[in-house]
Nucleic acid binder design. Structure first.
Lengths: 193, 193
DNA sequence: AGAAACCGTTGACAAAAATCAACGTTTTTC
DNA sequence: GAAAAACGTTGATTTTTGTCAACGGTTTCT
């Protein structure tokens, strides 16, 4: 159940068996069925979740009620409305399960206590944030600088597993496009050769 | 010269006078004239810079040679091609000075040593990364979910000083728009009332 | 197993944004 | 201090993207 979580943790910061056991005390497993919410807009994001199994998406609703997907999370990724989590303010994101999920939750309280008591946890979080920031920076750079077809190819290469598993219209939403436009971009790409 | 740097540092993590002196050893001041490069695409980003005074921008060039601004930095902000800095790979960003600048440089080596020797520095970096990530997340959320006029207003509110100081066509580039489109968006907003 | 919902694609059309060109003003440069 | 470059705006036009509608083929639900 905590397998992947500690595998990922150890990739960043090596833990002894005792340290793993210590961290484990603070974690809460949770299962989520497809379409269930992990977080709803307006609620405070009290935990961030690590995905052991399954897939999640985060999205916001605009004034006309349309969904705009802001993030995905597959196995090995961590997701939450970070702003809401850190500042304890109402979330602007909704997060729900695209598939049945096994999650590992880390509450704000657990997070704060671990930061206080365990330097290795702080290192883990620092590296997690750094990686997340670099990935997001790359994504925004692509968004404003690459034409559609190159952008699709770049994103596809950046998140290959994602693009196989997630419906196209959600990829479109994630890229800020209509489903029809993405479909046409894809057909232009296949007709290139 | 190091005034603002330590002010910002202390806002995140309080330092004693001795600790400040210790950190100061690792810092290098640098002046940059308007239009000078801090970083050029292809070079490795060997330092990140803290802006004591002045303004910088980061941008990428597309296949047709057009500039797309990915980030700005004013007084109190830290800037660099983080991916290049962390991974020691060639930068994809260019960074240059929009005004004469006084910068404080932190080299990769200094960064690594401070991380090893000074837990408070790691905390500072963790908080810096967290803040940067939250800001970037908000920016991307606005990018894909808000219509142009609301997006302009939201960005304006998010970076009020920036919008006063930076030419409109750079704001447009930062928002992924042509200068003409932004100009029309602005005139639509003023005609609202 | 059958009905309903979902998915990806295509076509026709409308809306939005980019492009190109020109302009009067500032700001910079030398 | 004069020339050149940069700036923001506007108009006309083209290109890109969104929208609406329809379709056949899944998958999901019960």
């Amino acid at each position: 159940m905590y397998d992947l979580f500690f595998r990922k943790f150890n990739e960043k910061v090596a833990l002894t068996a005792e340290e793993e056991a210590f961290v484990k005390q603070y974690l809460t497993p949770k299962k989520l069925r497809r379409k269930q919410y992990f977080l709803q807009e307006g609620d405070v994001c009290k935990s961030i979740c690590f995905v052991e199994k399954g897939a999640l998406r985060a999205y916001v609703l605009d004034e006309t009620g349309d969904e705009h997907i802001t993030a995905f999370a597959l196995e090995g990724w961590t997701l939450g409305d970070l702003y809401s989590f850190i500042k304890a303010e109402p979330a602007t994101w909704n997060i729900d399960a695209l598939e049945d999920c096994e999650l590992i939750l880390l509450s704000k309280q657990a997070h704060d206590e671990l930061l206080q008591t365990m330097p290795k946890y702080e290192t883990y979080i620092r590296l997690l944030m750094t990686d997340a920031y670099m990935a997001l920076q790359r994504r925004t750079t692509y968004m404003i600088s690459l034409p559609l077809e190159e952008r699709y190819l770049a994103f596809n290469q950046m998140y290959p597993t994602l693009f196989q598993r997630i419906p196209q219209h959600m990829i479109a939403s994630f890229m800020g496009l209509s489903a029809e436009t993405l479909s046409r971009v894809r057909s232009r790409i296949s007709n290139r050769k």
